[in-house]
Write a protein that binds this DNA or RNA. Structure first.
Length: 902
RNA sequence: GCCCAGGUGGCGGAAUGGUAUACGCGGUAGUCUCAAAAACUACUAGCCGCAAGGCUGUGUGGGUUCGACUCCCUCCCUGGGCACCA
């Protein structure tokens, strides 16, 4: 190669190239018929110009629809999905691009394995995050959505992913949220959507209630404000009904382990015993139910503690106690956890069913209504109980010892509070048992005497679904006062309703098998007066209103309520009752964003269908999703809600699978200078400038090379320069090989190429993209020192790199004379027989320390004696062995020989 | 407090119990150039040594093993999840 051509190949100057190949020129070229436009844009030229080839190939791919599989005819469907983005912020940052690229690499790999890969994209554009952003930019959310959509789709296109752009889904589109509303109605009918008044999380800044999952350490996940506990009537989804199947299925999922652990923890099943304590005072008939995980300490229970909201607490009339209850509720609302616990004696006594002892019933602020039964028994083996008992001079009886005499002395004198498992003492017939046996025996005893049973309780709460905001799907329910006065409800009309919908193909639960449980409907037993909007009237369109901003809490005579923006619009909420035809009122709350995203994967395969939410045949063919990639921050939000909705749809007979995502992998987080990217830190990296300067291929390759995909990495400008240099070298190398079509691959070359295919194939399968790229770099280094590189070698190389750098691979592939896309080509395979080298390197160790490296012909490998002899002949080794006695020789074939000497 | 993940050169990171630091970044020197940039070549864990070579090294301290970044135990630190959970 001449000096001049060398310079020309390596020089990369975008502005120069732009001058040479102005945009106008490019577009005119693109109007050429596909057959002619395929081929090098820089025919005869040798510069690598990302901006030219990337936009060129993106157009051709779109025109040739290589990423739009025929959803009905595909033979090997592979649904490759990444979590769709919130288009709320200023645009996509490299973190988003990282996730999408990682998923896309996998999709491209599968496509080259012969799969019909469906990789859709859309926008999760309804909801608080988008609305908050709109408020910030002082634009109407609908207007802002338009702007964001355009910007996001432009950015997403620029990174060259294999998205099927013919099937986008935007959650704020009427044709989509019509079916989100439909979904709500299905849940309502199944008794899984209900209203109740409950202490809920209220964000004073977002001016709406939030689900438990959206509260992080007492703060709003969106705006970080401290949330407040408020008693409000809200819509809930009874996800707790599915706690057990949601938990059980986790074991069967091929998901990132840490996400599975997080879900198990969030569902938080704890097994224990439910104990019924009779109350001595006959005027109150109630029993008190107590849940415990430590039934072994029941014999030593010396008091009962009720939560301030407990029904028995509520029944107490004494004014002093009432005053305490109100105060305690306030304290609990403040969510302060470290405050000293307070309590008050109710004057009531309960009877310990195990030993018949009368024990006092207290109310205290450390008992929580939303865990277990809202009541607990106090004993000497719980630190909070002991602290409380000491403060109020309640006696304590230790019933567990450890066998360590010194320590037991302290336990018995109440100097130490022992909370572990031990041996029971002073426990009547249970004395002498160990804790685990005792828990079982006690529960059995209680069951036999009708005073309790084994029971599980959960951390999971029902999903609070209503939001007092504007930018979401209006909840498709109508409240009719006339019907309410007559105590009419959808459920009281269940028979009639069942008849009405029996012609539709899904199963409707009869009244008896209704999942609805009165436990959830304490305050509003039959949901009287509430009717779903008839399906034919969907969608309930979100009207365009100017005063869309949240209003927050207002007090009415009936108590506190949060007013939704739509509640100021009679033209929206005034309607006729679908049941009796009288004047009625629409629900003015909208549903949670997470409902929008809990079923979108079903819609992608059905975008052209208007009369159904999702097409049965398509869903059958494409779902569950084969590979789902997204952020670990959705471990217990989106991923749990999607699983729940999918299970419900299965139970209602709409689909025939329970789990939406067969395989899920969480990607890592991209940080900048060691810190999480955030606007406040000012270290958000926007991909556009890098795409412009280095090209999407360089950025993609860099992002995937930075570190393990599951762990994320630290973004640095100098790093991307490295991968850009690499691609330029690849470009130059390919030019070198164009004319070498007849060259045969050497033996050494065969070994290298087979080794590389093996490594890249395995690594990409495992999403170990960083090491796959390292393998490709090594292979490049090997090829670049060869005198000549064959066309075959470079073609394999291009195929292997094509998932990471799809444009340059396609361009060079085309320059090499290929007429069809590299992305539709067959992934290379390797042959084990070429992996064996005829020369092997053996490390020689003395007592485990490396002393010499031997090169040995392969055929000698199997013979330990030969190797040992060879090693002993080495001058270096001789020196070490001289005068020493060899105790042992360890030989690992093809790797190591170790002399153990005295 | 409980549950995960992790701690390796100047930096990002590689290593089925078998040659620790692959690959890349950065750095140093050189080639090319009037010069610079780019590109290319060589070196680049630390210490001692002109060299040959040797010693020390994967957060800490111990253990198992012929051999440990890898397995077991102790402790320390970082990141994440959960937490007034009875």
């Amino acid at each position: 190669m001449t000096k001049n051509s060398k310079v020309r190949i390596n020089q990369y100057n975008p502005s120069e190239i732009e001058k040479k190949w102005p945009r106008k020129n490019l577009t005119s070229r693109l109007r050429l018929p596909a057959s002619r436009s395929r081929g090098a844009i820089s025919r005869g030229k040798q510069e690598y110009s990302p901006s030219l080839i990337e936009s060129k190939w993106q157009s051709i791919w779109k025109k040739e629809k290589i990423y739009s599989p025929n959803l009905d005819k595909a033979k090997k469907p592979f649904y490759n999905l990444m979590m769709f983005p919130y288009p709320s912020a200023e645009g996509m940052h490299v973190g988003n691009m990282y996730a999408f690229t990682g998923a896309d690499v996998y999709g491209r790999f599968q496509r080259m394995q012969g799969k019909d890969v469906f990789e859709p994209i859309g926008l999760d554009g309804f909801g608080i995050h988008s609305e908050n952003y709109a408020i910030k930019t002082d634009k109407h959310p609908a207007k802002q959505a338009e702007i964001s959509e355009k910007n996001f789709y432009r950015q997403l296109k620029s990174i060259g992913n294999g998205f099927d752009w013919s099937r986008t889904v935007e959650t704020y589109d009427t044709s989509y949220y019509k079916w989100t509303q439909w979904l709500f109605i299905q849940l309502f009918r199944a008794g899984l959507a209900y209203r109740k008044k409950a202490p809920v999380n209220f964000c004073p800044s977002c001016k709406t209630v939030l689900a438990d999952e959206q509260v992080l350490d007492t703060r709003c996940e969106r705006c970080n404000s401290l949330v407040e506990k408020r008693d409000l009537e809200q819509w809930f989804f009874a996800i707790t009904k599915y706690a057990d199947p949601l938990l059980a299925n986790i074991d069967k999922l091929d998901w990132s382990e840490k996400v599975k652990i997080a879900q198990r923890q969030w569902i938080g099943r704890s097994e224990g015993t439910l104990i019924r304590f009779k109350i001595k005072d006959l005027r109150i008939k109630n029993e008190i139910e107590v849940f415990t995980t430590r039934a072994d300490t029941l014999y030593g229970a010396t008091f009962i503690v009720l939560a301030p909201e407990h029904p028995v607490s509520a029944a107490i009339k004494d004014s002093k106690i009432r005053a305490y209850i109100e105060k305690a509720k306030e304290i609990q609302k403040s969510l302060e956890k470290d405050k000293e616990k307070t309590g008050v004696f109710t004057g009531l006594y309960a009877i310990n069913p195990l030993n018949g002892e009368e024990i006092p019933v207290w109310i205290a602020d450390y008992a929580l209504m939303d865990f277990g039964t809202g009541a607990l028994f106090g004993d000497a083996h719980d630190e909070r109980d002991v602290k409380f008992a000491k403060k109020y001079k309640i006696p304590l009886t230790p019933t567990l010892i450890t066998g360590d005499k010194e320590f037991d002395k302290k336990i018995l004198s109440l100097e130490e509070c022992f909370t572990g498992y031990g041996t029971l003492i002073d426990s009547g017939p249970f004395t002498g048992l160990d804790s685990k046996q005792a828990m079982k025996r006690v529960a059995e005893w209680l069951k036999k005497h009708n005073a309790g049973d084994f029971e599980a309780t959960y951390h999971l709460r029902d999903w609070l679904i209503s939001r007092q905001r504007y930018w979401g799907p209006p909840i498709p329910m109508v409240y009719c006062k006339n019907c309410a006065d007559q105590k009419l409800s959808w459920f009281s009309m269940a028979e009639e309703n069942e008849h009405k919908v029996s012609s539709s193909k899904h199963k409707v639960l009869s009244k008896d098998e209704n999942i609805l449980d009165t436990k959830y409907l304490i305050h509003n037993t039959d949901m009287v007066g509430w009717w779903p909007v008839p399906e034919k009237d969907l969608p309930v369109e979100l009207p365009f209103i100017k005063d869309y901003k949240p209003l927050g809490i207002h007090s009415a005579s009936s108590g506190q309520a949060v007013k939704a923006p739509l509640a100021s619009h009679p033209e929206f909420y005034r309607t006729k009752c679908p049941k009796c035809g009288m004047n009625a009122r629409r629900e003015t709350d909208v549903s949670d964003t997470f409902l929008d995203s809990a079923w979108y994967f079903l819609r992608y395969v059905s975008t052209e269908f208007d009369s159904v939410p999702f097409d049965e045949a398509r869903v059958k063919k494409w779902l569950p999703v084969n590979m789902y990639i997204g952020g670990a921050e959705h471990s217990v939000l989106h991923l749990l809600y999607s699983r729940f909705i999918t299970m419900v749809l299965k139970d209602l007979g709409f689909i025939d699978f329970e789990e939406p995502f067969a395989r899920f992998r969480a990607h890592g987080l991209i940080v900048k200078d060691g810190a999480k990217m955030s606007k406040s830190r000012g270290n958000v990296v926007v991909p556009d400038q890098y795409v412009k300067k280095f090209g999407a291929d360089s950025l993609r390759t860099y992002l995937m090379f930075m570190g393990p995909f599951s762990q994320g990495g630290d973004f640095r400008d100098t790093g991307i320069e490295g991968t850009h240099r690499f691609l330029r070298r690849v470009w130059a190398l390919a030019q070198k090989s164009i004319s070498n079509s007849k060259l045969l691959i050497s033996n050494e070359g065969k070994r290298a190429v087979n080794k590389t295919i093996k490594k890249v194939t395995e690594d990409v399968s495992n999403l170990s993209y960083n090491t796959a790229i390292a393998g490709l770099m090594e292979y490049y280094n090997f090829l670049s020192v060869q005198k000549e590189v064959s066309k075959e070698e470079i073609e394999v190389f291009l195929k292997l790199i094509s998932p990471f750098a799809p444009h340059i691979a396609e361009e060079l592939w085309s320059i090499l004379g290929n007429k069809t896309s590299i992305h539709k080509s067959q992934w290379p395979t390797y042959d084990e027989k070429y992996l064996v080298s005829d020369e092997v390197i053996i490390a020689v160790q003395i007592n485990g320390k490396l002393r010499e490296v031997l090169k040995i012909k392969n055929e000698k490998l199997k013979m330990k004696n030969d190797i040992e002899q060879l090693a002993k002949e080495s001058a270096k080794i001789k020196k070490y062995l001289e005068g020493k006695q060899i105790k042992k020789v360890i030989y690992v074939e093809g790797k190591i020989i170790n002399f153990v000497i005295v």
